[in-house]
Design a protein around this nucleic acid. Structure first.
Lengths: 158, 158
DNA sequence: GGTGATTGTCAGTAGTACTGACGATCAGCG
DNA sequence: CGCTGATCGTCAGTACTACTGACAATCACC
């Protein structure tokens, strides 16, 4: 049968279509993609990426920590953490220090300039997040965070 | 009592910590990860993955289409679409048909059994999505979708 | 002192998605 | 008609991420 092919000359580069914009997989993927782009732009002056900043956030919250503890907290594999710390150490943001009380471990801690860089990058990243949720009202943005926490099973202060 | 060590054989005390559970990058990444897991389990009997199902959703909504049109609609690169269609064709879910009116193009369309498989897999995927948002009230789940559409710049239009 | 577990590391692998190039094809213009 | 530029599908190469499995070093326990 002759095909009713839509040879639409539409030049719209990215038109999701109504059926896709209801699929959570599509929505989540593209939301993350968009946030990643915004974050990458914001962090570019600091020579960091989003994953590295997340790692730094954990290190900052925990204080000097073993790689494994930080990895668990971040929710990544310990082998993934190795390369992450490698990169951060190469940029002189953190240092590995031998841990005398348990010599299997490294203690990972900020350098002085590294922590300063972290604080500035964090501010830029927060600004990117704000831009990301800017289409939402403040209450909706807060609800959005709350719902994300709920679906990944993080106990919220409720 | 939540901070104490779980004394079972549990090996993954995935404790995000308050500093991380406020970062959208972390939340989005793990939300997507969790949905992917649920979807993968749901689609496993159908020998499909989430990306392939998304592609099929587009094909179903557009009817027989060129690869490039479908790729645009899906929001992926046209080179990415090649491998996607390759896999789906290898599973006899879709077929490439030469398009006489423009011989540069392929027309991609469902096989008979492929469309039937798609409908069943879609149902399973929807069930996985429902499980994903099950921690939310119905109204919150709907709001969640709306907010996702808003932040990726898709007009809700209803 | 010996056994089993933990830590950091590395190699290998898999999935995803991009760029750049290529042939084939189409459309427009002289 | 032939030439030129653009488009489509394809492929090779690359990059990034994150995993498994193995390893040496170290610790904890008995």
């Amino acid at each position: 049968m002759s095909s009713d092919v839509v040879d639409s000359v539409d030049q719209t580069p990215n038109e999701p279509g109504p059926e896709l914009s209801n699929r959570l997989g599509y929505l989540l993927k593209h939301a993350q993609q968009r946030l990643n782009e915004l974050t990458a732009v914001a962090l570019e002056p600091y020579n960091l990426n989003g994953r590295e900043l997340g790692c730094l956030v954990v290190l900052d919250a925990m204080g000097p920590t073993s790689q494994q503890d930080a990895a668990r907290r971040l929710g990544v594999d310990r082998t993934t953490m190795v390369a992450l710390i490698d990169a951060l150490e190469a940029k002189s943001v953190v240092v590995r220090r031998p841990f005398e009380e348990d010599r299997r471990r490294n203690v990972v801690e900020f350098t002085e300039s590294g922590h300063e860089l972290f604080l500035r990058a964090l501010k830029a990243s927060d600004e990117a997040e704000r831009r990301f949720v800017s289409p939402l009202e403040d209450a909706a943005a807060e609800a959005f965070r709350h719902q994300l926490r709920a679906v990944i099973g993080v106990d919220d202060a409720r």
